[in-house]
């Protein structure tokens, strides 16, 4: 699967199928810090992603003065 990280726009190719919770653990990301999006839909930690998917992982934590 192709993973696109926002806002950095870095990309990663990963093979196999993953529960989103396992994918986040693999990427060392905490569930409350990112939105996981596929085909313009938000995914839950129990959804499955696999080789055919393009997944956007969007950081939600912003910094500096609001």
């Amino acid at each position: 699967m192709r993973i696109v990280f926002l806002p950095s726009r870095k990309e990663l190719e990963l093979r196999g199928s993953y529960r989103v919770a396992d994918l986040l653990r693999e990427l060392k990301l905490l569930p409350g810090t990112v939105l996981v999006i596929r085909n313009n839909e938000m995914l839950t930690t129990e959804d499955l992603v696999d080789d055919t998917d393009t997944v956007e992982i969007r950081n939600v934590i912003s910094g500096g003065a609001a």
Partner: peptide
Amino acid sequence: MRTSRPGPKPRCKRCRAPAV
């Protein structure tokens, strides 16, 4: 190559529809 199975789909607390 990793293969995992999906967990039980979370349900909406209010209307029991599939949660997002």
